[in-house]
Simulated assay, not measured.
Amino acid sequence: MSTDTVPPRAGEPWPSASPEEAGFDAGRLAEAMRLMQSLETPWPLDLQAKLEAGFFEPPPQNELIGPVSPRGGANAILLRGGRRVASFGDTRRVDMTFSVAKSYLALLAGIAKADGLFGSVDDPIRETVDDGGFEGRNAGITWRHLLQQTSEWEGTLFGKPDTIDRNRVLGIDNTGRPPRDTTRELGAPGSFWEYNDVRVNRLGLSLLRLFKRPLPEVFAERIMAPIGASQDWRWEGYRNSEVEVDGRMMRSVPGGGHWGGGVFIHAEDQARIALLAARDGIWGDLRLLPEGWMAASLEPCALNPNYGFLWWLNTGRIRTPAASEQAFFALGTGGNVSLVEPADDIVLVLRWVDPARLDDVVSAVRGALAR
């Protein structure tokens, strides 16, 4: 099966294949799609009520400072070889995507590196970003540290202190660790892995300082337009996230919807982005990400081998046993998944499908392949 197929520009028919042409057993694939449809997330349609009820933090730390919209129903799109094989639901419904946006920040970091805006991922950020955020104990923080969530950055950004997410250790053994939000003594940069939205937002602000342009503009120009995405998506900041850059006020955008804001997008555009990642940053005859960036992004973090540069990995097939060890994911809370399965040249985008059943979904899809 060719791995060169990419979708055309927005509004034109997506190259498609029947299940049989794509190497699936049609009956088993239909069963897999029905399974997905039956597994809608338990999250309510009213996402604002969910967040205001303290899903992430109790009041007052959970104050929303960005826009929130109700979610739609479960939907999904499956690609193989870049061709559309199956889908269900409204795959053009624009919805919040939460932490899937973190992986999009990693793509922008790759573009910044390609543009020479920083040298090495192991360079201290203070060498190119001089805004007071990387002084004192933060002076040794590198791009790698922020991209791998090991920075131990200390501070408050847009009214949210990093302590909100202290000891938030998703995806690794939490045995013996104190509860989340418990104050702990910070270590040196690179000494502790912690899933921390405030620090991811510090990365977003740092990239804004480098590009000297709002990140949604850069993302639209360097990623979304070349891959033929729609103009339906948006990347929202916070009401208090405007900063001055070279005498102009620009809004910094977050890597999630933790406190509102973030990327609002539909499954079809997400499938294009995931396919770009699957193709090593190449789209047709265009190289959009620097050579080697995706490989670096998918190297396991020493402190959490199931995490790369803001992409979730499947090292040891621990996160999703039904997927291959080479599989990687952009994951957003509530059941938002962009899965790349290199072993089978599959891209699967799930919206509002119960994340607790992801392994069952992957098992059903891979089990439908006619081997």
Score class of each variant (00 low, 15 high):
196 N>A: 10
123 D>R: 10
157 L>Y: 01
140 G>T: 00
190 G>C: 06
115 D>I: 01
135 E>S: 15
86 A>E: 11
73 G>F: 02
135 E>T: 15
113 K>R: 15
143 W>I: 06
199 R>P: 04
140 G>E: 12
180 R>M: 14
172 I>C: 08
210 L>F: 01
126 R>Y: 00
211 F>Y: 15
80 R>D: 03
99 S>C: 13
131 D>P: 07
90 D>H: 01
107 L>V: 01
79 L>F: 15
156 T>Y: 09
164 I>G: 03
197 D>A: 14
74 A>F: 02
106 A>F: 05
114 A>K: 14
81 G>M: 01
120 S>A: 05
208 L>P: 03
177 R>L: 14
163 T>I: 08
214 P>D: 05
181 D>P: 08
164 I>W: 12
204 G>K: 10
214 P>R: 06
73 G>K: 14
173 D>K: 12
210 L>T: 06
195 Y>D: 06
179 P>Q: 05
210 L>Y: 03
110 G>R: 03
121 V>I: 13
93 R>E: 07
96 M>F: 06
91 T>W: 01
80 R>G: 06
92 R>W: 11
175 T>F: 10
134 F>S: 03
187 G>K: 10
77 I>F: 02
156 T>M: 14
179 P>C: 02
121 V>F: 06
102 K>N: 04
90 D>M: 08
159 G>F: 12
203 L>E: 03
152 E>L: 09
138 N>H: 05
185 E>D: 15
191 S>T: 14
173 D>F: 08
124 P>M: 03
72 G>M: 14
148 Q>R: 13
193 W>Q: 02
186 L>I: 08
74 A>K: 05
152 E>C: 14
119 G>D: 13
187 G>Q: 13
123 D>Q: 14
111 I>P: 05
133 G>D: 12
205 L>P: 06
155 G>R: 10
211 F>K: 11
200 V>Q: 05
208 L>I: 01
148 Q>P: 08
141 I>P: 05
148 Q>M: 12
195 Y>N: 10
213 R>I: 11
182 T>R: 15
138 N>F: 08
85 V>F: 02
102 K>G: 03
135 E>H: 11
130 D>Q: 15
183 T>L: 15
201 N>S: 13
169 V>A: 08
92 R>P: 00
129 V>D: 10
199 R>T: 14
176 G>Q: 04
94 V>E: 04
205 L>K: 10
156 T>S: 15
138 N>A: 09
90 D>F: 00
177 R>A: 06
137 R>S: 03
127 E>P: 04
168 R>K: 13
201 N>C: 11
129 V>I: 07
131 D>A: 13
183 T>V: 11
75 N>K: 01
113 K>P: 00
110 G>E: 02
198 V>N: 11
82 G>T: 07
130 D>H: 13
112 A>C: 03
156 T>R: 15
182 T>V: 07
125 I>L: 12
193 W>R: 05
164 I>K: 13
82 G>N: 09
184 R>A: 11
114 A>Q: 14
206 S>N: 11
195 Y>T: 04
86 A>P: 00
141 I>V: 09
94 V>R: 07
151 S>N: 06
192 F>C: 03
168 R>F: 14
117 L>V: 04
127 E>R: 10
181 D>L: 15
103 S>V: 04
